[in-house]
């Protein structure tokens, strides 16, 4: 059992949790992820990236968006509650060294897994350009944390509610066009964003690493549900990744594979919403009846 030490709502449906997990916290490296399961009997196992860790406290930080049934249920957990099953760290750690100038692009919730990589790259002595993108200002996460690490920080919002209006690929292109182009690009975010980041850097021959978050069951190579096509070959995200050469990943195939259970996921999310509304109403009823007494 892994106790939730703290919980914070970062925006509408984005949550940050610090969870007690001493072993994972001391072993994890940037780029790695965990798999968690709320209910050991019937629960689903979902992969989530590790946003941060504090080995002294023995905790890891996860940031997640309540988009599916399991993440919605997780979002309803409070401080002091426990997560029944948590396993990790999984995946190969990011290859970190002094490359020179590294441009890191994070889109939406993808800024969370990017954060430890940015930390690592900074420590290795790289010059860091960070581009963060979000649909709108309120959905932007970890801005202060990134500001304190980045040598240059560019923020984009789709609706122009904050800083630059537009997509992250535009500043990325400008940076590639500079006299000294970056030595490495790292892009983490929605698959379509990673796809277009890779397309942006391709003509400039800037090596581009992406981190993939696919459907998984075990996370140790056993099921192969996470497989992606990279350079025409089948790779497993859990044991060969999660990071791959963005110029070789078949994003279109990956995006289709991500939708494999869409109908069932949509149904589960609706049921979960209903279930939680009923729970809330019952709670409200209980508390009003308590007051009346």
């Amino acid at each position: 059992m892994n106790k939730i030490i703290s919980k914070k709502q970062l925006s509408g449906d984005v949550f940050m949790m610090r969870i007690k997990a001493p072993l994972i916290s001391s072993e994890r490296r940037p780029g790695q992820f965990v798999i968690l399961q709320i209910d050991g009997n019937y629960g689903e196992r979902i992969p989530l990236t590790i946003a941060d860790a504090d080995p002294k406290e023995g905790s890891i930080t996860i940031i997640f968006q309540a988009v599916g049934a399991t993440t919605s249920r997780l979002a309803a957990f409070s401080e002091g509650d426990s997560i029944e099953n948590l396993v990790g760290p999984l995946g190969r750690p990011t290859h970190i060294e002094k490359f020179g100038t590294v441009v890191c692009v994070g889109g939406g919730i993808g800024v969370a897994p990017l954060y430890p990589i940015v930390q690592g790259m900074k420590q290795a002595g790289n010059r860091l350009i960070v581009i963060m993108g979000a649909r709108t200002k309120s959905l932007l996460i970890l801005e202060n944390e990134m500001r304190s690490l980045a040598d240059e920080l560019i923020i984009c919002t789709d609706d122009g509610s904050y800083e630059r209006k537009g997509l992250v690929t535009l500043p990325l292109k400008e940076i590639c066009e500079r006299e000294r182009k970056p030595d490495l690009a790292v892009a983490i975010g929605p698959p379509v964003m990673m796809k277009f980041c890779a397309e942006t850097t391709r003509p400039f021959k800037v090596p581009t690493m992406v981190s993939l978050n696919t459907i998984m069951v075990d996370g140790t190579g056993m099921c192969g549900g996470c497989r992606v096509t990279v350079g025409g070959k089948t790779k497993f995200v859990c044991v060969d990744g999660p990071e791959f050469d963005g110029h070789l990943v078949d994003f279109d195939n990956m995006m289709k594979r991500l939708k494999a259970y869409k109908a069932q996921e949509d149904k589960a999310r609706e049921e979960c919403k209903l279930e939680m509304e009923i729970a809330k109403k019952t709670q409200r009823k209980l508390s009003t009846s308590n007051v009346q007494r």
């Binding site: 069951v217 075990d218 140790t220 190579g221 056993m222 099921c223 192969g224 549900g225 497989r227 992606v228 096509t229 089948t234 497993f236 044991v239 078949d250 195939n253 289709k256 594979r257 939708k259 494999a260």
Partner: peptide, 26 residues
């Protein structure tokens, strides 16, 4: 254990609806 499923390396193997028996059974 021997947990790394073999695939056939044929065209279309990563289409949606193709599973390792491991995944399907798990």
């Amino acid at each position: 254990g021997a947990g790394l499923p073999k695939f056939m390396n044929i065209e279309g193997e990563n289409l949606v609806g193709v599973f390792s028996a491991n995944e399907y059974l798990t």
